[in-house]
Computed example of a mutant assay.
Amino acid sequence: MLRLASVRLALSVPIMAIVATMTYFLVELVPGDPAAFLLGSGATSKQVSDLHHELGLDRPLIDRFLSWFGDLLHGDLGTSFVTNESTLTSLSRAMPVTVSVALLATIFTLVVGVTLGMLAAVRGGVADAFVQWFGSISMSIPNFWLAAVLVLIFAIKVPVLPATGYVPVASSPTDWFAHLILPTIAVGLAGVGQVAFQTRDAVADQLSREYVRTLIAAGLPRWRILGKHVLRNASGPIVTVASIGFVFALGAVVVVESIFGLPGVGTLMLTAVRIHDLPLVQGAVLMFCLVVVVANLVTDLIVAALNPRVRLT
């Protein structure tokens, strides 16, 4: 297990370096002059030139990149052009919101998807047909449309849940959860179908194995066979699909955050793009990449723990 983690961490280093390089140069290609935008349309060319020098934008591109990359190696993501606040500080404040929604959405996807998949594999017939229908519908609904519908129903028509805002979990766990219920459903429903289909196929495959018939003949309760043996042996591909769903959930949160007024990284990044705050955009992209790398590492470790055959020895 330790060797597996070491290999995955070693592979993540060049990936992060490549992403950092591509992120920097792609963000630099964004049209518009940050200095001119910050000063407004009434600024003189002298004022724009002075701000270019103050922000370091008058230096050659390669020099700016090497300086930025060197600071990055020391954990410095730069400083916001607009607020003059450390990019790392801004992201550290916003990232818990985004990760909270993505994690809750992934848990929601797993619970509902695995339950439906198990039902389809064990019962078959009408249950299987319903799961296939529901899974296909869930994957087809745009999350931004679902978010608007959820707000309309549960925050306006029947006001039982808050429509916007965020409460830190340390302040009130109950209010924190209440504010994230609707975003969680809006983001997580799209992945239910994929998890349900994967669970259905994996469980059906395990149910056809010889060891299941042996356990049934030995008189073990059906629920114990399904929970302890079948689901465990089928969990590898399910966990992998859930990991991919978490990555997609991070992307969906960027859109959904603006609908629910959540102060997450998605909202922060969209605002930074609009006001040409390049260090904040670059830092947000790198932070997303880091979260994805960590999620993939955790997934590999979970799969290895569930299935010793994939461990490196």
Score class of each variant (00 low, 15 high):
residue 236 G to K: 02
residue 273 V to P: 05
residue 228 K to D: 03
residue 226 L to F: 04
residue 228 K to F: 05
residue 252 A to H: 01
residue 255 V to A: 14
residue 279 P to Y: 05
residue 228 K to L: 04
residue 254 V to T: 14
residue 247 V to I: 04
residue 232 R to P: 05
residue 264 G to C: 10
residue 241 V to F: 02
residue 225 I to M: 11
residue 231 L to P: 09
residue 281 V to H: 10
residue 221 P to W: 08
residue 252 A to Y: 01
residue 266 G to R: 03
residue 234 A to C: 11
residue 223 W to Q: 11
residue 253 V to P: 02
residue 279 P to K: 06
residue 260 F to R: 09
residue 225 I to P: 13
residue 228 K to Y: 03
residue 259 I to T: 12
residue 229 H to T: 10
residue 235 S to V: 07
residue 266 G to N: 05
residue 234 A to K: 15
residue 269 M to Q: 08
residue 241 V to R: 06
residue 265 V to M: 15
residue 233 N to F: 06
residue 232 R to Q: 11
residue 249 A to E: 00
residue 265 V to D: 07
residue 271 T to L: 03
residue 220 L to D: 01
residue 268 L to R: 12
residue 270 L to A: 11
residue 248 F to V: 00
residue 282 Q to T: 04
residue 253 V to E: 07
residue 253 V to N: 05
residue 245 G to V: 00
residue 259 I to M: 09
residue 251 G to H: 00
residue 234 A to T: 10
residue 241 V to D: 02
residue 276 H to E: 14
residue 229 H to S: 13
residue 277 D to I: 13
residue 240 T to C: 01
residue 262 L to K: 10
residue 275 I to K: 07
residue 257 E to C: 04
residue 270 L to T: 09
residue 255 V to I: 15
residue 248 F to W: 03
residue 268 L to M: 13
residue 272 A to V: 11
residue 254 V to A: 11
residue 257 E to S: 07
residue 229 H to N: 11
residue 249 A to V: 00
residue 276 H to K: 11
residue 253 V to R: 01
residue 233 N to H: 13
residue 272 A to I: 05
residue 227 G to Q: 10
residue 223 W to V: 12
residue 240 T to S: 09
residue 260 F to A: 10
residue 222 R to W: 08
residue 267 T to M: 10
residue 231 L to A: 12
residue 220 L to E: 08
residue 261 G to Y: 11
residue 247 V to E: 01
residue 234 A to S: 15
residue 266 G to W: 08
residue 229 H to K: 04
residue 261 G to C: 13
residue 269 M to Y: 02
residue 248 F to N: 00
residue 278 L to E: 08
residue 275 I to R: 11
residue 240 T to H: 02
residue 262 L to E: 03
residue 239 V to D: 02
residue 253 V to W: 07
residue 268 L to H: 07
residue 274 R to L: 09
residue 236 G to F: 10
residue 251 G to R: 01
residue 273 V to R: 03
residue 222 R to K: 13
residue 269 M to W: 03
residue 263 P to W: 14
residue 243 S to I: 06
residue 244 I to A: 00
residue 257 E to N: 06
residue 220 L to W: 12
residue 247 V to G: 00
residue 275 I to L: 08
residue 256 V to S: 01
residue 237 P to Y: 03
residue 236 G to T: 14
residue 258 S to I: 06
residue 234 A to M: 14
residue 278 L to Q: 09
residue 241 V to G: 07
residue 265 V to W: 13
residue 240 T to V: 06
residue 270 L to G: 03
residue 220 L to I: 15
residue 276 H to N: 15
residue 239 V to Y: 03
